[in-house]
Design a protein around this nucleic acid. Structure first.
Length: 107
DNA sequence: CAGTTGACGGCCC
DNA sequence: GGGGCCGCCAACT
């Protein structure tokens, strides 16, 4: 199995575990991956996203509930449309983290 | 090998 | 309350 202890693999595994209709922040993914300070690394890891179909990187947003502007991998704010399709409600270009942030035991 | 960058986060002003 | 700066780790040039 994919028991690779690589930092990136951990991050990808966490992102892959994000349920539909929910979002997670970069710091959250980093914390679940093992280290909270990997927030920036998470961003880079998703940037090199080797499997965009298996890794819903669009479910990862900033702690403010806003999506990255550099997410132009499909065309502008396509990420928001994908999240809305998942049932995530957006308000003024931002998602209500209080309601849609992925519930994790790390909290 | 060393310096800089980067899909961020948190603290300071 | 909003904006700006520094800090974290890994990858790229």
């Amino acid at each position: 199995m994919e028991n690779q202890e690589n930092t990136f693999s951990k991050i990808y595994e966490v992102v892959r575990r994000i349920p539909r209709g929910r979002v997670a922040s970069y710091g959250q993914v980093a914390a679940l991956a093992g280290n909270r300070r990997w927030a920036r690394v998470v961003g880079y890891a998703l940037h090199v996203n080797p499997d965009p179909e298996g890794i819903p990187c669009y479910r990862v947003v900033t702690k403010d509930g806003r999506v990255s502007e550099a997410f132009a991998f499909g065309g502008g704010n396509r990420q928001i449309e994908l999240l809305q399709a998942d049932g995530v409600e957006f308000t003024d270009g931002r998602v209500d983290m209080k309601r849609f942030q992925w519930e994790t035991p790390w909290i």
